[in-house]
């Protein structure tokens, strides 16, 4: 069977859930080989999970040169692998970095690229959702290797134990790929909760939350559901919540099973980042707020009473 490359999206070695989703999808197209690129020693944390989700091989490239420069070294290594292995497809996570690396690989290998797929058929046809979810497009790559970036939560990850035979790659990054050096990585996040892109449930707060302290009740609701916390730009710009939690056109694009928006009006730029969520719940005191046009369930009320009451109900019902 044909080989399918799955580029591992990981945090310090631990694969993100989306990697397992990609492996699950890849099995429909052929035999999945995972490609792990990171700093020296990081792959140790990944191998187990990659095998559990069906990776037959794991190509491992570890080097300070991979971790220390933006996208170009990774693209170089993946492009070389593509030329060497001639896979039927290469799957990337649709994160900012995943798309950027894929774009460079496309140029290097003379291939077409389908970005932000929400589904991928066994024959390589990708489904993309455009114009804020209003139109669904089915596309295929017509030139070179099939390169596809897939959004997190597009498919449920399913285990299927496999060998995960490790093959070490010799990493030699050219000087040309070392143009953009990562001088410093600053972690600003609020740890302990699922990653926004990966989470099955997202609870977001907006200007209606009123202050940084107000996010306490949003976090409590999120924790009762095991959810990630998001925010509108109004809330991140005001400094109430860290920027990387912004959902929307210029923040993260999420498509969880459940999205709860509290005190968010539903501006077009916010919708762009959450419109493909499966189920949407809105809590807003203004019955005319545009977010209600999207909501499967809308509650017109004051979030300061509704959100804590909801959290209490959830905790009670979950026992």
């Amino acid at each position: 069977m044909a080989e399918v490359l799955v580029i591992v999206d990981h945090l310090d070695g631990t694969p993100k859930k989306v990697t397992y989703e990609l492996l699950t999808k890849a099995r429909e197209l052929g035999e999945p080989s995972a490609v792990f690129l990171g700093a020296p020693g990081q792959s140790a944390a990944a191998l187990d999970g990659l095998g559990r989700y069906g990776a037959q091989k794991v190509y491992v490239g570890e080097s300070e040169d991979i971790a220390g420069f933006l996208t170009a070294p990774k693209a170089e290594i993946i492009a070389a692998l593509v030329k060497d292995k001639a896979p039927v497809a290469v799957l990337f996570a649709s994160s900012a970095e995943g798309k950027e690396v894929a774009a460079r690989v496309a140029v290097k290998t003379g291939s077409g690229l389908l970005a932000d797929a929400v589904d991928l058929d066994a024959d390589g046809t990708a489904t993309q959702s455009i114009f804020g979810g209003a139109v669904e497009v089915k596309s295929t790559v017509t030139t070179g290797t099939n390169l596809v970036t897939i959004r997190p939560n597009s498919t449920p990850p399913v285990e299927q134990a496999s060998e995960a035979v490790v093959e070490q790659l010799t990493v030699e990054v050219t000087e040309a790929a070392k143009g953009a050096r990562i001088v410093e990585s600053v972690v600003e996040g609020k740890g302990g909760r699922p990653d926004l892109g990966d989470a099955a449930i997202v609870v977001s707060g907006g200007r209606g939350v009123g202050a940084a302290e107000g996010f306490g009740i949003i976090e409590a609701l999120a924790d009762s559901l095991g959810a990630a916390v998001g925010a509108s730009r109004a809330a991140t710009d005001a400094g109430w919540y860290p920027h990387q939690h912004q959902v929307g056109q210029t923040g993260r694009t999420v498509s969880p099973q459940l999205y709860i928006a509290a005190g968010i009006s539903g501006a077009i730029q916010h919708r762009a980042g959450m419109q493909t969520s499966k189920t949407i719940v809105a809590i807003n005191k203004d019955a005319e707020a545009p977010i209600f046009e999207l909501a499967d369930f809308g509650l017109v009320g004051d979030l300061f009473t509704v959100v804590p009451a909801l959290t209490e109900q959830i905790v009670k019902r979950k026992g």
Binding site: A106, S129, T142, I280, D296, V300, T305
Partner: peptide, 23 residues
């Protein structure tokens, strides 16, 4: 000469208006 081609597209029906209740 595009490197990918659109095979088909469909306009998704607008989201069904949900249930809106007042607190």
């Amino acid at each position: 000469a595009a490197t990918s081609s659109v095979e088909s597209f469909s306009t998704r029906p607008p989201r069904q208006a949900g249930q809106i209740v007042k607190d």
